[in-house]
Design a binder for these strands. Structure first.
Lengths: 158, 158
DNA sequence: AAGAATATGTTATAAAGTAACAAGTCAAGA
DNA sequence: TCTTGACTTGTTACTTTATAACATATTCTT
């Protein structure tokens, strides 16, 4: 995982991220009586290894390499499951999906998208959510919140 | 305009909002040497009167009623212009567009989307943006920020 | 083993957004 | 005033993203 969001913008071994995260996902799904079936598991691996946001059709292309048929519902169903289980997030600015960096933990995801290297950092947005709650009209109950910032990371600015 | 975002969730005369806002847009565009052509002006009116987020194709349908041809670029070009000029915002969660409530003023838009009545409130998100900036890794420069919350307004909860 | 719930296979289609180029409009300088 | 260049619109065609609907298969429960 990425306890430090800054690591998202640093080079590192992606396959290492993947292994532990998959193991944790297995445990989590078992605890919830949810099935991390082959497509779902592979989809999560694909997101973890990409280490950036991937469009559903990009995921689908990679699933095809693994023998699954190239049909949109294959990818969308797996992605929807992962999102519902909090193992992945949907990045609306990009029409894309990314593996969650804090699976199983209650958190408000906030995203930084580097337009230079396409890297994506997920950071805890609790404070951001509180600021919004304060600003919101009395009585409005926030269910789901998207916080997505596009910009340039340190490396890409220099 | 809506100095008080809470008004977005209260019933009121939409056509009244529109008139003043259009007049202001005219002034603003003149000052910037930008042309608020008929399609653009009508598109802005449509957004202002709808008083909620409208998909590009919904806008297009209404433009057709005014004699414009039903061709996607007609709507997208007008909408893109309005967004570029800060007269409208794009709501990514909804694949939709809404008139800006603070045209000509520097601000960070934050949106509350009521899933009960589909009303949309735009509120100043400066504090929210600052919270995110604080949480972001050193060196990341935020260019554009989406803050979009889905939930239920007071009226729809009761 | 039967039935219910869940997951996958498959076809088809809807919805959202863009590329590319031709044609028209407008404003400013020669 | 003419013409040049920038901008705007018209139009065709297409790409990308996402979902509906229904059949089949798998798994869990009793």
């Amino acid at each position: 995982m990425h306890p430090d969001p800054a690591l998202a913008f640093a080079t590192h071994d992606h396959s290492r991220c993947s292994g532990a995260a998959i193991a944790q996902a297995e445990i989590l799904m078992a605890a919830r009586n949810q099935r991390l079936t082959p497509v779902r598991k592979r989809t999560l691996e694909i997101l973890l290894q990409a280490h950036k946001a991937l469009g559903a059709y990009e995921v689908l292309d990679k699933l095809v390499d693994d023998g699954f048929r190239r049909q949109p519902p294959v990818a969308y169903r797996a992605l929807d499951f992962l999102v519902a289980q909090g193992l992945a997030h949907r990045i609306r600015r990009l029409n894309a999906f990314a593996a969650c960096m804090y699976p199983g933990r209650v958190h408000v995801p906030a995203f930084l998208i580097c337009e230079g290297c396409q890297a994506l950092a997920e950071l805890p947005g609790q404070a951001v959510a509180e600021a919004l709650d304060t600003a919101a009209p009395v009585g409005f109950k926030i269910d789901r919140l998207s916080i997505e910032a596009a910009g340039l990371c340190l490396a890409c600015r220099t």
